[in-house]
Design a binder for these strands. Structure first.
Lengths: 141, 141
DNA sequence: CAGAAGTATTTTGCACGCAAATTAAATTTG
DNA sequence: CAAATTTAATTTGCGTGCAAAATACTTCTG
């Protein structure tokens, strides 16, 4: 191991890449029919749906233009629906479907399972520091 | 802040995303003429060039198919050159050009600058734990 | 109220990144 | 040595993500 991982930037990038691939694999194995990106969007919507793209963008920390595509695919897969806003013809609200609510527990369980696996062997204190540094990175950059 | 960052998976993904964007911006501002992905490849090559795609793949932790494209663009930008291997006509060695060596110090400085900025305010001990957890994630997943 | 300014969403263009399939060459095997 | 297998690199297909431009609609201003 190591060599290139002497650089914390690269180590961060590669760990996230691994995390992404692992999540993708787990979602496939469990046959949820969603991708890692869609999982994040659903996770945000589980905390409250019936929101516009722009509102969802703030909740999910994803760009509007990224969400357009993700919502397209989620809609095609019948996990969300776009509902017109009468007062503003530019906008619409995004609602979860029954299908989406049906996989809610499983989806969240998979996320937790990924977290558990990747942090296995780390103490609570280490995880606390890890979260703190990640948050620091998010805020400083 | 928070809400969705209660989930460490999402926090990891978003922090990496920020890191990527910040690096991209810095590279552009300094006019290096390379992208974050290319920076990683160059970083691996600075540690030793004259390697095949497969060897570079191991050094850079990138897939062969990902490298093909990256090397294409680096070659077009005159930062690397493909040199045929006489003994094996399937393969070639990748060498850094003078242009690549000319930006070496600057490229590495930018990486270090990103690392410094994103870890600002964190103690050495916290950074040590952070690296340890990242490595754990890489190994466990 | 018409033109200007602002806002919501989408489209386009580019950069990653991997898996699976493909191509071409080298090596192993019968 | 010819066929089968393996190996090296590439291509194709899909998912993610942002910035900048485009589109369509709403709101503000004179």
């Amino acid at each position: 191991m190591l060599e290139i991982f002497d650089n914390v930037c690269i180590l961060l990038a590669k760990s996230e890449q691994k995390h992404f691939q692992f999540t993708k694999k787990l979602l496939e194995e469990h046959g949820l029919g969603i991708t890692p990106g869609q999982l994040v969007v659903l996770y945000a919507l589980y905390k409250g749906d019936g929101v516009s793209i722009t509102e969802l963008s703030k909740k999910s920390y994803l760009d509007n233009s990224t969400l357009t595509g993700l919502i397209d695919r989620l809609e095609r897969a019948h996990f969300v629906s776009r509902v017109d806003v009468p007062e503003d013809r530019r906008s619409y609200y995004i609602y979860l479907t029954e299908e989406a609510n049906a996989i809610r527990d499983q989806a969240i369980a998979i996320m937790q399972s990924v977290a558990k696996t990747m942090l296995e062997g780390c103490s609570e204190e280490e995880v606390r520091v890890f979260r703190k540094v990640l948050l620091n990175i998010y805020e400083k950059l």
